[in-house]
Each structure stands twice: as C-alpha cells, then as structure tokens.
Computed example of a mutant assay.
Amino acid sequence: MVLVAVGYLVTVVLAALIAGFCLIRIRGPKLLFYFSYRLGLVFNEMPFLVIYALVASTALAFAQGDIATAADRVAVVVAAVSAAGLAVVARRGMRAASVVRLALDEALGAGTGTRRRPPLARIALRPFFRRRGDVKRVANLSYGEAGRRNLLDVYHHRSRPEGGPVLIHFHGGHYDQGRKNTQSLPLLYRLASKGWVCISANYRLRPAFSHPDHLIDAKKVIAWAREHTNEYGADPTAGVFVSGSSAGGHMAALAALTPNEPSYQPGFEQADTSVTASIALNGYLGTYFDGDPATSPVNLVSADAPPFLIAHGDLDELVETENPQALVTALRSVSTSPVVYAELPGGHHAFDLFHSFRFEALIDGIEDFAAWVRSRNRAV
C-alpha cells in the first residue's frame, strides 16, 4: 500500500493548478474559467505567495519525515516544477517596468520613462495593504441624485498641499457590478501621497440603467471635481485626468472623447467636462452591449482628442488585445496628441488590484506620463 502525505499533496496540487492558471490564458469551459480567473486574479500578481507556501510546506514535510514513498517524491518534483513556473510568472511581472518605459519613450520621446526602484518590502510583505498613513480618504460624498450609486470617495494628502492635479477613477465590473474603493487603490494612494487629489466613484449599473446613463454619471463626476476638489487642495487647471479599469476604462475613454457634449450633460450643459488625458487599464474599448457604433471610442476619435495611456495584459482572458489596439490605431491616425500603449507581458485582466511588480511599474509609468502631459500643457 502506497501512503501519501495528503496535506502536502493538496498544497502541491493547488500550487500546480495556480501556476498553470497564471501561465496559460483559459477561457472555458465555464467552471474551469471561473476558478482560473479567480485564482489568477490574485496569484498572477503575487506568485511569490505560492512559492512561500511551497517552500514552507516542502521543508516541513521533510522535517517531519513525510517524504517517505515514491508518490511523495513525485509530489516534491511537482512542487519544484510548479515553483519554477511561478518564477516565470514573477519574471513576467518584473518585465513590465522595461515595457512601460519603452512605450513611454516611443510615444513621448526618449528619456520620458524613468527607472525607479520597486517598493520591494511593500510588494513582498504587504501587497494587500493599499492604505498609506499620509493619505486621507473622505468617503461617500454625493455628486448626483442616484443614492449610493452616485457617491464618490476623495483621496488627498493629509497636509492638503495646494495646486495639485486631479485623477478620477471609474471601477470595472461589466457595467453590472463593482464599486468604488476596490480597484486601482495603489494608484490612487500613490498619487494622493504626491499631492494629487484623487476620486473613485460609483455609477449607475445595468440592468436598471444603460448607456448613456453611465457616461452621464462620469460627466457629473468630472463637473463635481472641477467645482469641489479645490476644497481638498487641488487646482483643476493643473490637470484633470480620468482613468478606469475594464468597463471603467470604456467610460474614461468615452468621457475623454466627448468633452462638453450637451446630450451627455442633461441639466448641467454648461459645466466643463473636458479632461487633460485619459488612462485605460485592462479596458474594454469597443461598442456597448446594444452594439450602437456611437458607443465605441474608436468611432469618436478626433484631431483634438487628449493624450491617452492604454495598458493591457497580453494574456487578458476577458478582452483580446486587438480591442485596445483598435483604439490605439484609430487615435494615432487622427489625433494630434500622443498615445502610449503598453502591452504587459503575462498580464491577465484586473492587474490593478494589489501592489505587484507589474502594477507598481505601471504606476511609475502613469506618473511619468502625467508629468509629460502637464509639462507640455504648461509650455503651450
């Protein structure tokens, strides 16, 4: 009878599955996709957590004499292979820094992308902790009449330095789920710690609401930011940047490409809803669910479109890279403003949730992008 160290085997099998889910883009069947997506969501950005578990459990199994049979030794080999696969996943994340710098240099000029030391302690030891002691979050401020779906949070430095720019972020969730203070928090806290005033906003969702309700809400947030963020130390004339994750990236792109459009500003037609630049993270940038061509950012590009930064994972299991690439091509063929496109090696969907090598490198790139845009605007 062959006995196996069951506890150790369970750990190794789970680690092997996670490594496979991170290395390979899986889209079906539905149940397999669900588990691969959920596990990859976390561990593709933090593979070292699984490596820690493998090393610790393997050391413990040897120390307790549990590696005694041929099956146990096979499990050790599987653990080693899984760890090697997770090391590849980690290496892909680390490559994001050079990819983002190259994208910035190609679009904005050599030397735009700067080299920075990644926050190793935060990435390795505190990836889940997004808050910072020098940043205050002011929660649940109302910007409209739709109750909790028209609430926003403001993030600002506790010292409230004056004259900072504004970043507005819209969450993803297929337009039918999601909420503020869940996505891109490392970005919001980083910029707020540098003197920005950042906003994360809820908006009305399907099926009760559809396009253009989401976009109208986005415009209301922009108008609110221009009117109120000076109370938290911002100066909207220093720049109002709009960003979004997944469906929120679609909103950010539409908002940037329809400045001051009265049909999307009922009751506040005179408000300034123009933005300085747009940032789309793992964004869906095609047509809305009804297929109306007017809901695709690709069909709204113009010569006076603002600068764009679009970042997408090359292993995104929900949105093919051809989707954001289509908007990049359309913008570059018409717009007089630059377009930065960073295709992140090994990146899955929703890479913006935690402190990881990939997202920290992209945040560095967003800072460099914003600095370039603001410098160009000051020079005009």
Rank of each mutant, 00 (worst) to 15 (best):
D272W: 13
D272I: 05
T273H: 10
T273W: 12
T273S: 08
T273G: 03
T273P: 01
S274W: 15
V275T: 12
T276H: 13
T276W: 09
T276G: 08
S278E: 13
S278L: 10
S278A: 15
I279M: 13
A280F: 08
L281A: 09
L281R: 05
N282D: 15
N282L: 04
N282R: 11
G283T: 07
G283P: 08
G283I: 03
G283R: 05
G283D: 13
Y284Q: 06
Y284T: 02
G286T: 08
T287S: 15
Y288Q: 02
Y288M: 12
G291S: 02
G291K: 12
D292M: 00
D292S: 13
D292W: 00
D292G: 04
P293K: 08
A294F: 02
A294P: 01
T295C: 11
S296Y: 10
V298M: 10
V298Y: 07
V298Q: 14
V298C: 06
V298S: 09
L300N: 15
V301K: 06
V301L: 11
S302L: 00
A303L: 09
A303H: 12
D304K: 11
A305L: 07
P306E: 11
P306D: 09
P307N: 12
P307C: 09
P307W: 05
L309T: 06
L309A: 02
L309S: 06
I310S: 07
I310M: 12
A311K: 01
A311I: 07
H312W: 03
H312L: 02
G313E: 13
G313Y: 08
D314V: 02
L315M: 14
L315I: 12
L315W: 14
D316N: 06
E317N: 14
E317F: 10
E317W: 09
E317L: 05
L318H: 14
L318K: 15
V319T: 14
V319D: 14
V319K: 11
T321H: 08
T321L: 09
N323I: 11
P324V: 03
Q325P: 02
Q325S: 13
A326S: 15
L327M: 06
V328G: 10
V328Q: 07
V328R: 14
T329D: 15
L331P: 07
L331K: 10
L331N: 04
S333W: 03
S333L: 10
V334M: 04
S337M: 05
P338G: 09
V339I: 09
V339T: 15
V339Q: 04
V340C: 06
Y341G: 06
A342I: 04
A342V: 03
E343M: 10
E343W: 00
E343P: 00
L344T: 01
L344P: 02
P345Y: 07
G346F: 04
G347D: 13
G347M: 07
G347R: 03
H348G: 14
H348E: 12
H349A: 12
H349S: 10
F351I: 03
F351R: 05
F351C: 06
D352P: 01
D352V: 01
L353R: 13
L353Q: 12
F354T: 03
F354L: 14
S356W: 11
F357P: 02
R358T: 12
F359D: 12
F359Q: 08
E360M: 04
E360P: 00
A361H: 04
A361T: 00
L362Y: 06
L362P: 01
G365P: 01
G365L: 00
G365N: 03
G365K: 00
